[in-house]
Design a binder for these strands. Structure first.
Ligand SMILES: [Mn+2]
Ligand SMILES: [Mn+2]
Ligand SMILES: [Zn+2]
Ligand SMILES: [Zn+2]
Lengths: 137, 137
DNA sequence: ACTTAAATACAACAATGTTGCGTTTAAATT
DNA sequence: AATTTAAACGCAACATTGTTGTATTTAAGT
């Protein structure tokens, strides 16, 4: 799989920053916070990193999810989403101990029977608790 | 219903700040952000307001929920929760237009069959879309 | 009325995220 | 291979949300 090509297919230039961020996101389908990636890429400008992540999200390469601390995280879209909306609405798991967030890709988010008058457009389902390594320890 | 008494029952002093914040939260079971309440109570010190809300949450008078913007919101607990954990896990609705958040109190959050190894301790279910007044307009 | 632990007000700080703008570069064109 | 240019980057400045420390004030029990 050619990451540069994957990025260019969405109309974005395949720059070094984008390629290296995408390499991390693509290799491990966890939702990464800006701070996580800033640690990994200590030399990358922080505004550039924000813009890389937002551009990826807007073009459907990654999806955005808010974690239990209110921090925005980004995760690779297994099957790139149409640029109109994100089609991969699955449950996310957030570990209370290590704070890592996992995409439960084969657990689709259910739909809910919302009271009359409300119009549901989507949902964020977040389960929190202990991840595998933290519940073992 | 005596708000001062309700506050004191949880071991907190019934101060003017706490009574007026509780009056708003109790009168309308929506989840309010700090910024909302700062607007309503323009003279209240912002740190005091943060501490009022956190104290309410820690004593089970209100519950905390993160909205679609990652901002923490607080809503009245219809039946005060035990101080060990919050027992009122229901679905929340967040309007994309007016950003208001509503407690769907008679819609309990479902439980999910999380993969082996993970230990679920709770969940945040957030549905977003258009609220009644915004879908009418 | 007195006492005191709890709460408040104010300042300082931290983390997350955005905007504006001059400079650099990916990649299309010649 | 050189040229062109819109896109992306780097840096500074700013905004919002939230926390911590501490001196002063106050709710509520005695
Ligand atoms: Mn995901
Ligand atoms: Mn609620
Ligand atoms: Zn963990
Ligand atoms: Zn609305």
């Amino acid at each position: 799989m050619d990451l540069s090509q994957h990025i260019r297919e969405r109309g974005l230039k395949a720059t070094p920053s984008r390629i290296s961020v995408m390499k991390v996101l693509e290799s491990d389908h966890r939702a990464y916070a800006h701070a996580d990636l800033e640690t990994i890429f200590s030399t990358m400008d922080r505004v550039t990193l924000y813009r890389v992540l937002n551009d990826f999200e807007e073009t459907g390469l990654v999806h955005k999810v808010i974690d239990m601390d209110g921090v925005t995280r980004f995760a690779y879209c297994k099957h790139s989403c149409p640029d109109t909306h994100h089609a991969d609405e699955h449950v996310h798991f957030n570990c209370q101990v290590c704070r890592k967030m996992f995409c439960l890709e084969n657990m689709p988010a259910p739909s809910f029977n919302i009271p009359k008058g409300f119009k549901a457009m989507g949902q964020n389902v977040l389960v929190f608790g202990l991840c595998k390594s933290c519940s073992a320890a």
